[in-house]
Design a protein around this nucleic acid. Structure first.
Length: 660
RNA sequence: GGGCCCGUAGCCUAGUCUGGACUAGGGCGCAGGCCUUCGGAGCCUGAGGUCGGGGGUUCAAAUCCCCCCGGGCCCGCCA
């Protein structure tokens, strides 16, 4: 009879726990400490540091023994004596060791059979343990302004966001991926204005790169014109220091212009001609911002057209990286529908908004204090939350204000909202949350999650969209695929050209994604080509290779010969044991990744599985193993490894190839 | 000035939330070995560490608390 478990290691853990609970309750001395104390001290069981100490351990006796005035090891021994293993399926042995630990040893044959059968039976579903409560979750990620191509920093956002979405789906949640298009404001207006001056040219090359060029050029030429004007006006005053500063700024932008001229000679010339004919281009940009916000038809057509061109480029890039969206949300739509102004009106009715001169200020600090939220938000009592300006003197709204309306809109179709947004926006995300509290959206505020990640830095310089200085996601993928191609040609010259191309594509892109995922998101990453484009060991290609290796073995199985029932009790070599344990823990790993939103634990797990698999592969024969019951057992084990490796790679959005 | 984040071998990184057998786990690089077994993008062995520094709490601290140092970010009528 086959038994199947959705989470084999958790079954083992539960057995250990109930054995321990029962033994403890049969110990008179411990019982005298009181049931509530016992309960809180019976912390979770931990993995021991070394397999020689078993698979799970409890350090309960250290604290309890002190209260009872005996040695930890003596208490441990007394508790172990009271453990009755007669009905245990997965626990083989319990020992008191190491000065007071209670160590639980797994019944390997039973766990092996349970785990391997479960993985093979559940297949694609293995590891995807459904949460008790299914939530509708919106994951908003990427949301890059449609004014220049995605760069490597944005790629970290996209890859993290997409993986979080996949992890939550694995937990059975209903996930929707949203892209927030920030088309309102100065930056979109600048690029649209440049596009208009160029007489709406047909994009050459990749659309977002084309828009990016126009943005840098327009922004640069406007900046130079503005600086020149400012220098002119204060030239006669005696503010020498300020003048010098402006001059330095101007010099820098002039050199940026020279760079851009070299890269885009034709566009540069045309745009310079056009802009010089305009009296006050700055004012025209401002007028465009205002008329767009007001919903003027001509402005709408222009700006939306430019955004769409750029977004088309984003879609191409993201599709190549295996990332898609369910919804593209326009910031301007919230403005035109009146949702933003309605939200501001409601905020004005709360005691937290006041008029300071011409502007509306939101007193976030007062909300935090009145509702006693500081502790739960992880803030110090003394910390004063800065206030947020909701509207400008001219009555127009600011970014975070519009984000409040957007968040409320998102909660109309979601129980939880996860915003994948850079760490530098922590304060804005905090103010946003406090605004929801102020409006009485208590539950929503609590279910609004800022998934903060750190930046991708470049060694030596900073990326700057305005200056046209960035390393694009496209460029990184191109280079990765190119290097992967060299690698494939070197390692497998016999493959046909078409297949080589296909391999280099998923190898190169897998490598980039994995590199961005495998580091803890809160840590900064410094971009270097070597770091991203590695094909050995702790990388996606290594995982893909291990998967292909497993597939390769399984292809060679002749089922007529190997149709012998496996005897899992023969899988007892250390290399086999560590594989079985890893496989058994996979569902737990995905639960942990989902509950604590940690994509990197999936990467970590996949790597250790591949690592153990390759050690197993080198140490033990599979197809030539004897007797046949062992051979069947190992084949089944390899199949289970294949399934779990593939499922892990899928969670990370990385292709699991059968050959490479 | 205030707040948040990061600091683990030459470089990169896990473990920090939830203290436990840590004598700190990996990877790159370095030194050496393994092509008569299923794919060498592989395997095995070795050298390399004041866990940024100092105090404290604890039976027990990389992990918790305080102070300090170094790096980053935020504190806009920008997004």
């Amino acid at each position: 009879m086959l038994s199947i478990s959705i989470n084999p290691f958790a079954d083992f853990r539960e057995e250990c726990k109930s054995l321990l609970r029962e033994a403890v309750s049969n110990h008179e001395g411990v019982r005298s400490l009181g049931s509530s104390w016992i309960k809180s001290s019976l912390k979770r069981l931990e993995p021991p540091p070394n397999p020689q100490f078993g698979e799970l351990t409890s350090s309960f006796c250290f604290e309890a023994s002190r209260r009872l005035g005996i040695k930890p090891i003596e208490l441990a021994a007394e508790i172990v004596e009271r453990i009755n293993l007669s009905s245990s399926k997965l626990v083989d042995e319990v020992k008191a060791e190491g000065g007071g630990y209670i160590n639980f040893y797994v019944n390997l044959p039973n766990l092996a059979s349970l785990t391997i059968n479960s993985a093979r039976h559940l297949d694609l579903e293995f590891g995807r343990v459904k949460a008790e409560k299914t939530e509708r979750i919106i994951v908003e990620h990427t949301s890059v302004n449609p004014i220049h191509p995605l760069h490597i920093g944005h790629a970290r956002n996209s890859v993290l966001g997409d993986t979080i979405a996949r992890i939550l789906e694995a937990r059975g949640h209903k996930v929707s991926r949203h892209y927030y298009i920030d088309d309102v404001g100065r930056q979109s207006a600048i690029v649209a204005y440049g596009y208009k001056l160029l007489r709406r040219p047909k994009p050459e090359g990749k659309p977002d790169h084309f828009i990016g060029a126009i943005y840098s050029l327009t922004s640069c030429l406007l900046e130079i014109k503005r600086l020149k004007g400012e220098i002119e006006t204060i030239k006669w005053t005696c503010e020498r220091e300020k003048l010098a500063q402006l001059q330095r700024s101007l010099d820098e932008w002039v050199s940026v212009a020279a760079e851009l001229k070299e890269r885009y000679p034709e566009l540069f010339g045309k745009l310079l001609d056009a802009i010089e004919k305009v009296e006050d281009p700055e004012e025209e940009v401002n007028r465009l911002i205002r008329s767009y916000e007001a919903g003027d038809e001509e402005a709408k057509l222009l700006i939306r057209e430019v955004c769409q061109i750029c977004l088309e480029g984003f879609r191409q890039t993201l599709k190549r990286a295996g990332i898609t969206f369910d919804s593209w949300d326009w910031e301007s739509s919230l403005l035109w529908s009146g949702e933003v102004s309605g939200c501001v009106r409601k905020l004005e009715e709360t005691p937290y908004v006041s008029r300071e001169g011409e502007v509306l200020e939101f007193n976030a600090e007062k909300v935090a204090r009145d509702l006693n939220l500081k502790r739960s938000l992880g803030l110090r009592e003394e910390y004063e939350v800065p206030s947020l300006t909701l509207t400008r003197a001219d009555g127009t709204t600011l970014y975070t204000t519009r984000d409040i309306a957007y968040s409320i809109w998102k909660f109309r179709s979601a129980d939880r909202v996860i915003n994948v947004v850079g760490m530098e926006q922590r304060l804005a995300q905090l103010q946003l949350k406090l605004a929801l509290y102020a409006l009485g959206y208590m539950e929503e505020a609590e279910n609004l999650v800022h998934f903060a990640y750190n930046m991708v830095r470049l060694p030596g310089y900073r990326m700057s969209g305005r200056r046209g200085r960035y390393i694009t996601f496209d460029g990184v993928m191109d280079e990765a695929v190119r290097r992967a191609y060299d690698e494939v040609s070197k390692r497998s010259p016999q493959l046909d050209e078409d297949f080589k191309r296909r391999i280099s594509e998923f190898v190169g892109i897998g490598a980039v994604k994995y590199a961005l995922l495998s580091t803890d998101p809160v840590k900064p990453v410094t971009f270097t080509w070597d770091r991203i484009l590695d094909f050995e060991r702790n990388t996606a290609p290594y995982l893909q290779y291990s998967h292909a290796r497993a597939c390769s073995i399984l292809r060679k199985v002749s089922w007529e010969v190997d149709d012998v029932e496996a005897d899992y009790s023969l899988l007892r070599k250390p290399a086999e044991k560590s594989l079985i344990l890893l496989l058994a823990k996979f569902p737990d790993v995905l639960i942990e990744a989902a509950e604590s939103l940690k994509p990197n634990v999936v990467a970590e797990f996949a790597y250790s599985l591949a690592d153990r698999f390759n050690a197993f592969y080198a140490a033990l024969p599979v197809l030539k193993a004897e007797p046949p019951e062992l051979r069947s057992g190992r084949i089944a084990l390899v199949d289970a490894v294949r399934i779990v490796l593939r499922n892990s790679l899928r969670i990370m959005g990385i292709e699991a190839p059968e050959r490479m």
